[in-house]
Design a protein around this nucleic acid. Structure first.
Lengths: 211, 211
DNA sequence: ACCTGAACACCGTTCAAGT
DNA sequence: ACCTGAACACCGTTCAAGT
């Protein structure tokens, strides 16, 4: 309906920025972290090596945009897992954390970029910062539900949620690093489910002898 | 005492391999992960760009050697912390895990390389694989002590040790990523101590309401 | 055996110039 | 406003040649 849709837009794309991010995501999935070259990305997108600089100040900014995209996808996946699970709050929390590990295992390269090298979130672009904050927000909400149902002890919910996050994040990263004893490499979906559930169970019960 | 110590060894070094690793460690501490260029390293070591290839098949091999060095240092630090702590097994375990987080915060670049991008430990060189395994070994031993003292429940010690590891590893990485709410960036030594102790305490007690 | 110097095929980034 | 082409200062890696 809009005029000149097939008309002479400048060169290749109406929206090179989006095209670059889409192709970068594909590159990351196919080739892993190693293939992180701007020139290669430009080539695949059918554009000159200098073209990306019209949309991103530098390579780091493009990578940050990828991380932001990753966080948004993660949040969406977590929310969906939460809603799809049974009404029991602890089960919902577990479904969510399982999805967290699943996301890490299925998108290892993006996950490494999200939490990855160097740049603490603090000096990341504000959109990235915000997207990361949203991710911790959904975890917090799920923990609050568990507290209300008295499945998790009363006390500072933020502190308790962070503990849950730490457990599931540590699990995800040891799996990615191939350091989880007994898990295959890469871990199967069934293993991920089993491990995530076992670790959440343990996070709830603790290490101390019962009694 | 050995002959010709100051004599005409080939060019600069008697042991270029060691010199390269030492300089690489310094580079990593000073400049962070970004400065990971072989040519820059060669320059700093006072040697041609091609010289490292006499000692390492490629750059990845040098990085793997750095990771291995890191694991050895970590194991040494963990053992020392273990011995220096009071005799109470749980206190010793906590002292060790605190040291783990401390190591991560004080050597962020090496830590990222050790657990870092891409290469699962499985297809790493065997020396690296072994050094990483040693690190998990000392954690396991400390957990076994706690079980004997009935401070940790009976059950598969490996499984319990891995849970402890996951907690402390997750804490270390969220701190490095700057995602621990309320912690400064970089975290102070006092914050690290407080957080590591709090999280170990929580790992022992669990999230469930007591009673 | 260990290192140099020169070369090759790549990078990220800048900038004038084109449409 | 958005992109190209050429250029600059870098990379990792190879290889003949030197000692």
């Amino acid at each position: 309906m809009r005029p000149r849709r097939a008309g002479p837009h400048p060169y290749h794309h109406g929206d090179l920025r989006r095209a670059l991010l889409r192709e970068a995501g594909r590159l990351l999935r196919e080739e892993g972290l190693a293939a992180r070259s701007l020139r290669e990305l430009a080539r695949r997108t059918g554009v000159s090596a200098a073209a990306p600089y019209a949309h991103f100040p530098d390579k780091a900014a493009l990578v940050a945009a990828l991380a932001e995209q990753g966080f948004r996808q993660l949040v969406t996946a977590l929310r969906r897992a939460f809603r799809a699970a049974s009404r029991d709050p602890l089960r919902r929390l577990t479904a969510m954390t399982t999805e967290y590990v699943r996301f890490a295992v299925e998108h290892p390269a993006v996950f490494q970029i999200m939490f990855g090298p160097e740049r603490p979130v603090i000096d990341a672009p504000p959109e990235l910062h915000e997207a990361a904050h949203d991710a911790s927000g959904v975890m917090l909400a799920a923990v609050l539900d568990c507290q209300h149902a008295r499945q998790v002890e009363a006390g500072d919910p933020l502190q308790l949620a962070v503990f849950g996050w730490v457990v599931i994040h540590g699990l995800a990263l040891l799996l990615l690093a191939g350091m989880m004893p007994g898990a295959s490499q890469p871990p199967t979906r069934a293993e991920v489910t089993r491990l995530a559930q076992a670790f959440m169970q343990r996070a709830v019960s603790g290490l101390a002898p019962r009694g």
